[in-house]
Amino acid sequence: MWPSIFGAANIIALIGWIFLILLPHKPLPLTAVLYLGVGLLCLVYTAGLVALLSGIADAGPGGLQADFSSIDGVRAIFASDGGVTVGWTHYLAFDLFVGLWIVRDADAKGFSRLVQAPILLVTLLAGPAGLLIWLVIRERRARLHGRMKG
Rank of each mutant, 00 (worst) to 15 (best):
D67C: 06
Y35H: 08
R75P: 06
I5Q: 09
G150P: 04
L92I: 03
D72H: 13
A142E: 14
I11Q: 13
S54D: 06
G150E: 12
I133P: 06
R113H: 13
L100K: 01
L125G: 12
L34T: 07
R147L: 14
V33R: 01
M1Y: 12
D58Y: 08
A57T: 06
G60V: 03
G146R: 15
W17R: 09
I133Q: 04
D72S: 15
G62K: 12
G16D: 02
I71M: 11
P29E: 10
G48T: 01
P27I: 03
I133M: 13
L43Q: 01
T31A: 15
A59S: 11
W2V: 00
W88M: 11
L43N: 01
W88G: 00
I133N: 06
S70R: 05
G37Y: 00
D105I: 07
R113L: 04
L53N: 02
C42K: 03
M148C: 05
R147Q: 15
A142G: 13
G37W: 03
G73L: 10
P24Y: 05
L30S: 05
G99N: 04
G60L: 07
I77A: 00
S4P: 06
L40R: 00
L64F: 05
I133A: 11
L20Q: 04
S112T: 12
L114S: 11
A117L: 10
P24M: 10
M148F: 15
F94E: 04
W88K: 03
I71Y: 14
I119V: 15
Y91N: 09
V38W: 01
I102C: 04
L144S: 11
M148N: 12
L124R: 07
A79V: 09
I102A: 01
G7A: 14
K149Q: 12
I18T: 09
W101R: 09
H25S: 13
K109C: 06
Y91S: 10
Y91T: 09
P61D: 14
R75N: 14
D95E: 09
I11K: 11
L131V: 09
V136Y: 12
T123G: 02
V98I: 10
A79D: 13
V44L: 11
V74A: 09
L40D: 00
V136T: 13
W2C: 00
G146W: 13
R143T: 11
V103S: 07
L52I: 02
C42S: 08
I15Q: 02
W101V: 09
V98P: 01
L100R: 02
W101F: 13
L124G: 03
H25D: 11
G110L: 05
G99K: 04
L14H: 14
L23Q: 12
G87P: 01
T85K: 06
K26Y: 14
P61K: 14
Y45A: 02
L64V: 08
A76M: 14
V74D: 05
D58R: 04
G37Q: 07
D67A: 08
F111A: 07
D67Y: 05
L135Y: 11
R140L: 13
L36Q: 06
L20G: 02
I11A: 14
G146I: 08
I15F: 10
D105N: 15
D67H: 10
A8N: 12
V84A: 06
Q65G: 12
G127C: 03
R141K: 14
G73P: 07
F97M: 12
L53C: 05
A57H: 03
T89R: 01
K109S: 10
Q116W: 04
L30R: 07
L14A: 12
R147S: 15
V33F: 00
A57F: 08
L121C: 11
A13G: 02
T85N: 04
P128S: 09
